[in-house]
Design a protein around this nucleic acid. Structure first.
Lengths: 196, 196
DNA sequence: GCGATAAACGACCGATCGTGCTATTTTCTT
DNA sequence: AAGAAAATAGCACGATCGGTCGTTTATCGC
């Protein structure tokens, strides 16, 4: 059962790439099969349904996000350096080579916000985890004396998310070359306002 | 030719509602026809193609945005009050009763950012206009002495967009009841940092 | 009120959607 | 090398997609 798992992983890799561009609904079995180089039914046998495929793609995206963004940032020193690393790697994540359509979570969020179901629920769960991780990092920075004692950690997480979303918008839709500079400038202003 | 135009407008109204939830691609002729109460071919006759329908829906959205957000705000006094009105009405726009799926521009932006074509181009044009309007309002506030003389108006527009997008995310996907408070708090902080 | 015209309909096209079922091929075990 | 098991392919299904066509119905100018 080694071969099956290998092709399954290869399929999911391709699927993540495509989903970042077209979303989970636009990701059809036919196009994915063509891209992965096997028949539609051969591909379908790896998943019991399209919904399961979507869940697996979402899981793949999360795994990639953890190893690309979260894990390295958690190796940085506690406090502001770690918050900075989280933001910096999050920003780079948007342009990862295996995500030609940009952050899949942004695409999925807009696709699923009105479509109830297990895929949406799982995405919401992951988003909550991520926001909690951001808020925790901010609270640690308070403990370390880097940030103000009365800092609202959840508000900071909201503001960080705001910058990333705006960067995504300016960069991907408007193709604005200044998007990255704008995002960094907003981030520095946010840090300055948060410091002790 | 009065009757035709009336039903056409009714169709576009329905279509805008549906597009705010499902996007422009998810908006199918069949479902729209059922919703509007006519046959698929009868509906299709009003538009020459689905792309034309999409363009018309986009135009309808812009018309609504102008009359709901921009026009009333421009009647406010120049300077900070007008900037505040623009933001406040923009925030309310996200929950307009005729937009059950939230701001259609956010949905469309994510849907079209990787799909080239005339619909995307027109959306980008509208977005640029809107950003320019925001920056202009900010510059007027500088002229009026409300905002700092060295304020970066485009950066402010980027930050305003950020808040709205984050509000959209927290409110629609996460269903966070604190989203509105968070957005207003971020806006007030932005204003405070911009004042002279 | 009548004839012209605009508007809506129903049937149908080829393509593609997700998803079964059955063969066939490939891989793994022994 | 042979046989079991896993992986893949082939084919077909009902539904729906955007779109075309000829026909019928409703509206409008006179």
């Amino acid at each position: 059962m080694a071969k099956g798992e290998a092709t399954r992983d290869a399929i999911l890799e391709r699927a993540l790439s495509m989903a970042s561009q077209t979303g989970l609904e636009g990701l059809t079995l036919g196009s994915l099969a063509k891209e992965a180089g096997l028949s539609k039914s051969g591909l379908f046998a790896h998943f019991q349904s399209k919904e399961q495929l979507q869940l697996d793609v979402l899981g793949t995206a999360v795994a990639r996000f953890i190893e690309t963004v979260i894990a390295p940032a958690l190796r940085e020193p506690r406090g502001e350096p770690r918050v900075r690393a989280l933001f910096e790697r999050w920003l780079q994540w948007e342009d990862a080579p295996f995500l030609p359509g940009g952050c899949p979570f942004v695409a999925l969020a807009n696709e699923l916000d009105d479509r109830p179901g297990p895929v949406r629920e799982r995405l919401v769960g992951y988003q909550r985890d991520w926001l909690q991780a951001l808020a925790t990092a901010a609270r640690i920075a308070v403990d370390e004396g880097h940030f103000r004692a009365d800092l609202d950690a959840e508000q900071l997480a909201f503001n960080l998310y705001a910058i990333i979303l705006s960067y995504h918008h300016f960069s991907r839709l408007l193709r604005d070359p200044a998007a990255e500079t704008r995002a960094r400038r907003a981030f520095e202003a946010l840090l300055a306002a948060s410091r002790a």
